[in-house]
């Protein structure tokens, strides 16, 4: 099992799109994939037609009564997607209260890692869609993953979010006493705008080592796929967004080996 977290402490940078696009392409190559929605907004959950307000079980429930120990409970919590070899651990809006519920309890940052350990041989890849907030859910993702992908919109304000994300990552690595490889992925790139070109240049200057040398372009077909509730490559395998994600996947796979 390989676990990748798709995280940024800024919203609207393409985290869910990245999770869905990479997950779909992995499944297309025959891999067994689990997508995990850690965001109380439940964007990923909604993407595949589930209601984050209406589900009886979600990631939230694994944090209580040691349910993370119960592999049958975890399996029963998973929901299908538009591909048979991709399952999803959904979010419910109750996740927004988790910080208060687990406040003061040691070890609550390891619940996701322990839950995934129960499914170790059942999936080849796990992709984590995290909330844009520093808290117990983001820490769970960083503690569980083996590689971090930071989608960053190519615009000025996104650079501040990137800075915060890298700072958070360094502190979690210090706390865990381990190194976690990370990649910064420029997203929503539009070569016609000065904002995109300038911010990409700034990213290259500041984060040369960790920056992917391509970018995910603005592509309305990615949005169309979310309306349809299917993986982008199912809608159009050759759209420029899907092609870019294919390149990204090849790089991540190579680096992760």
């Amino acid at each position: 099992m390989r676990i990748w977290s798709i995280s940024n402490q800024k919203g609207g940078v393409g985290k869910t799109t990245t999770v869905v696009s990479l997950g779909g392409l992995l499944a297309d190559s025959g891999k067994r994939v689990l997508l995990v929605d850690l965001d109380p907004h439940g964007s990923l959950t909604s993407y595949f037609g589930q209601d984050p307000d209406g589900l009886d079980r979600s990631l939230y429930h694994l944090f209580f009564e040691q349910r993370w120990r119960d592999v049958d409970y975890i399996r029963a919590t998973l929901k299908p997607t538009s591909l048979p070899n991709v399952m999803m651990l959904p979010a419910t809006t109750s996740l927004a209260t988790l910080e208060r519920q687990v406040s003061g309890q040691d070890g609550m940052g390891l619940v996701l890692a322990r839950s995934l350990a129960q499914l170790w041989d059942e999936y080849d890849y796990v992709l984590l869609d995290t909330p844009p907030i520093l808290g117990v859910l983001l820490v769970n993702a960083l503690a569980a993953c083996q590689q971090l992908v930071i989608p960053t919109q190519t615009e000025h304000l996104a650079l501040k979010g990137l800075e915060r994300m890298v700072h958070t990552l360094k502190m979690v690595m210090k706390s865990q006493k381990r190194q976690l490889p990370y990649w910064i992925v420029p997203t929503l790139f539009d070569r016609r705008t000065t904002a995109s070109l300038t911010s990409l240049k700034e990213m290259r200057r500041t984060y040369q080592e960790a920056l992917w040398d391509e970018a995910i372009p603005v592509d309305t077909r990615l949005r169309d796929a979310s309306h349809e509730g299917v993986f982008p490559h199912q809608l159009d395998p050759d759209t420029r967004g899907v092609r870019a994600y294919r390149h990204l996947l090849a790089m991540l796979d190579k680096q992760g080996k």
Binding site: Q66, G104, Q105, D106, G107, M108, G109, L110, L134, V136, V139, N140, A143, T168, M171, V172, K174, S175, Q176
Partner: peptide
């Protein structure tokens, strides 16, 4: 600020005796 955050991470990532 970093001290506070690091304490927060250490607590979340500590082994949990109750678990």
């Amino acid at each position: 600020n970093s001290d506070i955050l690091l304490g927060y991470f250490d607590s979340l990532l500590a082994p949990c005796p109750a678990d």
